[in-house]
Design a protein around this nucleic acid. Sequence first.
DNA 1: CATTATTTTTGACAAAGTCCAAATCTCAGA
DNA 2: TCTGAGATTTGGACTTTGTCAAAAATAATG
Lengths: 140, 140
Amino acid sequence: MRDPEATLRQHALPVTAQRVAVLRAVSQHPHATADDLAESVRGELGTISRQSVYNVLNVLTDKGIIRRIQPADSAALYEDRIGDNHHHLVCRSCGKTEDVCCAVGDAPCLTAHSHHGFKIDEAEVIYWGTCPTCQQKPRD
Amino acid sequence: MRDPEATLRQHALPVTAQRVAVLRAVSQHPHATADDLAESVRGELGTISRQSVYNVLNVLTDKGIIRRIQPADSAALYEDRIGDNHHHLVCRSCGKTEDVCCAVGDAPCLTAHSHHGFKIDEAEVIYWGTCPTCQQKPRD
DNA sequence: CATTATTTTTGACAAAGTCCAAATCTCAGA
DNA sequence: TCTGAGATTTGGACTTTGTCAAAAATAATG
């Protein structure tokens, strides 16, 4: 994220310290939870309410400035990288999350064959596995 | 599910009224939440504790007898149909969930190109869209 | 600067699950 | 069929993640 303030203005959002800080935090910590981000912002701003973190994240998500992903058994994660239709790879053991470019070309899984009369607008893909670190640990 | 009791025995699980009823409910109501299933079981058994529903669903899921899916902004859903690697199609508006066979052959999205050193074991795909019924309703 | 609408904050609340200890039940074996 | 050990069910407290609402503070316009 080059300039959080400019980004906010481009979307007609009043610029506040909280928004700038949260947006910067999302940019610096991809795949962080709301709580992680709150912690991060507190290190920078000194203080921010839990509710404000949620407010900001919701507004930014609604405006399409950031993206929310919600893997099973995890709080929502946020990321900066949008518009490129990438997917995610999550470690079942530690939750570590990585970006994955759509494997076969641009949007293969996305071929929205109309099914059951639904109008499909997105195909979300999550690859589940075990990260290198966890592969070395003894499984319980 | 042909015979819930036999299924439980095959997996070395003691047969209890609660397990049989929950398993049957999952079979009869694909994509139901734990709460939905509790209601359904109460209609059949008269009573079951909330905790037991969770206990049973967890055991059955661990044994691979049923499958749990967790779309964003929804409680976990359970289904009977396992082992065929199908995906899901969820209505953003009403949450209606349908099964979708893997679009391109057997397991295209599943091609687990190893990424970032992860050992990938599953590719979960959720198609998001609007169901026929909700397409007709005026959007708010 | 003053005004007005928007944000932030605080605290209560809600949904979905889990943890724990006590009571109950299942099932293998006598 | 009866018994007992071990597994399951239950009830209640608790946790996590997030939302609601009203009051206080702040940003942006003129």
